[in-house]
Amino acid sequence: MKSIEISPSQYVMVIDADRCTGCGACMVACAIENNVAPAHPDATDRTGVTWMKVVKVSSGNNGDGKPACYLPLPCQQCAAETPCVTVCPQNAVEVDQQTGIVFQMSQRCLGCRYCMAACPYHARYFNWWDPEWPEGMEQTLNPDVAPRMRGVVEKCNFCHGRYQAARASAAEHGQASSDPVTYEPACAQACPTRAIKFGTPANNEQGVGDLVHSSSAFRLLPRLGTEPRVYYLSKHKWIRQMAQMEKETSTGEEVHG
């Protein structure tokens, strides 16, 4: 399948599905880093806010020794025809041409949720409730990320706050603003088994430049032409086929995620 060339200065995330134990540390680290509030008592997996969401995927009956796997699902940061960008009526979604990061300006969002309908990866989350922290816990919020309010859409932005901080510190050290900076999103940092790798192919931190070309690399729903910047790795054929919607394994999957 042909695929557009990822610009070497743009960030990619490579998630090794064979290393993910489904522990959820990435989800927790993400929520803390990005000031996502604890769940409302009535929230469920369908109404929660989990920028990073790990799902368990069952193979059905042809798991060739691995009946299930875990797939962490952040925003896939689509590089082409980014579905959420074109649909937003008020330009609240932007693609940063330099980094390739799809950025949601929650401050401008009116909460029409059209972008959520457009996203094939369901990586966008709506604030069904106002964010609420137990008394005092709001003091532990990350000062780099503004909390959002009820009624707006938000999603993973590869820890934009960290990117900004890295950018600022690079500028202090005299680095040109066009050079990619090295930083790591919270999920990648938190992953105990180092299943999540992150960087630019140019700097090739953590070897992402090579990993995306490896034979076990794949992306979710590639035929939609969205060219996600999140790659997955698995040595298991059924996982690769399933993620790419190739027919042999398209029936019988179940999910808990």
């Binding site: 369908r46 799902v55 995927v57 069952s58 797939l71 094939p120 990866y121 369901h122 979710l220 729903l221 399933m242 993620a243 919607m245 394994t249 398209s250 999957e253 179940e254 999910v255 995620g257």
Partner: peptide, 8 residues
């Protein structure tokens, strides 16, 4: 849409 998504 995702292959492992359930029907809602």
């Amino acid at each position: 849409t995702l292959p492992f998504d359930p029907f809602l």
